[in-house]
Design a protein around this nucleic acid. Structure first.
Lengths: 339, 339
DNA sequence: TTGTACGCGTTATCAC
DNA sequence: GTGATAACGCGTACAA
């Protein structure tokens, strides 16, 4: 591969002149030599070595993005948003897929650091398998955390609590007074926030929080299925007329359980969930659910990272507003559809 | 950021010794000095600068991946497969999203080259907006093309023709003799290959290719919708009893059109399509469709690239076998379900 | 207007 | 066992 020296030799000038021509720096160059240099570069198919530039400059115009599972549309959307904003400012994205494996996370962070990325965006790291926040702080990397970060690490996450409140308020507004909840895994911050939102609305509305109507489904479809069977098993006395389910996956399992139990959604039980996964609108009934704009999350995270890089100071953490998408599973006012 | 020189100074040795210790090369080092070096490195939180290494070695352990749209699950799956294989061999993936914009493609390829990636995987570049294959050859980059590449560029693509044959053969086996086709855009290689597969099976089976039963839907839902209305409009004489639709998107539009026309799928018309997008199984009727394993495609492309890198010679192009997923839209044997 | 030479942080070669 | 030092390819301060 041709170097700047080769170009200089071919054009009969020094490498300094070549550099000045090729980088269009203000430095004056005689037009005839400029042409010679340009032609020599073209003839040699010269491509400047960015490694050398980065070594010199101390910047790589590269950021690292760490996600748990890129084939999950949520993270693909985040990546899409990150890439869009990054490329506007001529940065390139180095991608790491962790499979929620802590060792892979650590390894990728090390590689990112060795490759001297300008910054890192870390998505979905706040599970029990997640990165040790302390090690991040030490690493000296400029990091934006998508999720519930640790103190001292700038973070952005969807307003899970607010979204859950909006969803639960819809059920209250429809006239439901017996509202149960299927929560996610207790170690998930998102799950806890969603539960908190649910609980707050019950309090606001003066409705009782019935422990036997609240159970965990671990964020998975089977969990949702079993949760419904627990809550609605026969001989149980009173049953909820509506359910706030902490994610769509569990709602899918719940729908199946209701079908088997001979309960109709939304006529017998209204269901509202969270995430708005792509298939939510294709289910029968189509899910009423809280949408998180993954691409927006990615875009904003990247903007935060730019702020970090430009100012050198960690930006303030943010929340991303969610949006309730009303479809079929929530039904109409109680007493209308239930008739 | 601490350099090897800082570590050397702190440990009271030369940088050569530090390098030898940290890289665990066979070179003998006194145990006590080794310990001193290790401790100094730890104290300074030393992270070796991979840019310097790469500059020296001429390799970056990085590959570039170019996709048209990363939020499309097909490409997200490809990325997932590429990353999985790459990370097994400690390579990192630099991602470029082109939005099918030729300029962005060219720009990303230039950046990849300047960053001296070891190789490039190019997905979905073979549309009318695609990269000039000639410029790729000149660039000197080692490229694997996912799709119908140009001569001289190693490529891998799904066996569209074979998949279409399998799909059409199913319809024939079910007893259909009047089989229409909704094709994709004529400039798409995949679309053409799928049509060729359809046509071959008709020939094999001695069935007529009726031009009025073949029309293009441009790969989009509205196209599928309109195509059905063209083929099935009243006063048209004979109508097909089955349809091979060149992708799921168009099949979705087609289903809607059939519904409006009062035709039942699969009882009145059997439908088989291509891609197996995630929602295919959630539609009513669930689509019988040809699945492409995107992750496999990515994995194999990355393996091909490794072969390229290891041997220095472009690997032979490949095809990836598809898989027919039989669900509801194809129906049972004609005369059974149609009864 | 052009050229020389240093330094970015490594690894590897050679000498001690 | 250990240490200088020459690359790798580039930008730029300084000289001319």
């Amino acid at each position: 591969m041709a170097t700047i020296r080769d170009v200089a030799k071919r054009a009969g000038v020094s490498i300094a002149t070549v550099s000045r021509v090729l980088n269009n720096v203000g430095h004056p160059v005689r037009e005839s030599t400029r042409q010679r240099v340009l032609e020599a570069a073209r003839e040699l198919n010269f491509s400047p070595n960015d490694l050398a530039k980065s070594l010199l400059r101390g910047r790589t115009a590269t950021i690292g993005l760490l996600v748990p599972d890129i084939s999950n549309t949520y993270y693909a959307d985040i990546l899409s948003g990150v890439e869009a904003v990054a490329s506007e400012r001529q940065l390139v994205v180095l991608l790491g897929n962790t499979n929620r494996d802590r060792e892979r996370q650590v390894r990728y962070l090390r590689v990112f650091q060795e490759k001297r990325v300008d910054g890192v965006i870390l998505a979905g790291g706040d599970t029990e398998h997640g990165v040790e926040p302390g090690s991040l702080a030490e690493s000296g990397l400029k990091i934006i955390w998508i999720g519930y970060g640790a103190p001292g690490i700038p973070a952005i996450h969807p307003d899970n609590e607010g979204g859950a409140m909006e969803a639960t308020r819809l059920l209250v507004a429809l006239g439901h007074r017996a509202i149960g909840c299927i929560t996610g895994p207790p170690e998930s911050n998102s799950s806890r926030a969603r539960f908190v939102g649910y609980r707050r609305v019950l309090q606001e509305a003066g409705l009782p929080l019935r422990p036997e109507w609240v159970t965990s489904g671990g964020f998975r479809p089977e969990g949702g299925y079993e949760a419904v069977r627990r809550i609605f098993r026969s001989g149980h006395g009173e049953r909820p007329t509506a359910l706030f389910v902490a994610n769509d996956q569990m709602a899918i399992g719940a729908l199946r359980a209701f079908q088997e139990l001979g309960l109709r959604v939304p006529e017998d039980v209204a269901v509202v969930s969270f995430d708005d996964v792509p298939i939510a609108r294709f289910l029968r009934p189509a899910l009423t659910t809280v949408a998180i704009a993954g691409a927006d999350l990615g875009r904003q995270a990247m903007e935060m990272l730019f702020e970090f890089l430009d100012t050198g100071r960690p930006p303030a953490s943010r929340q991303l507003t969610t949006r309730l998408v009303v479809r079929e599973s929530s039904g109409g006012p109680v007493g209308t559809l239930q008739a």
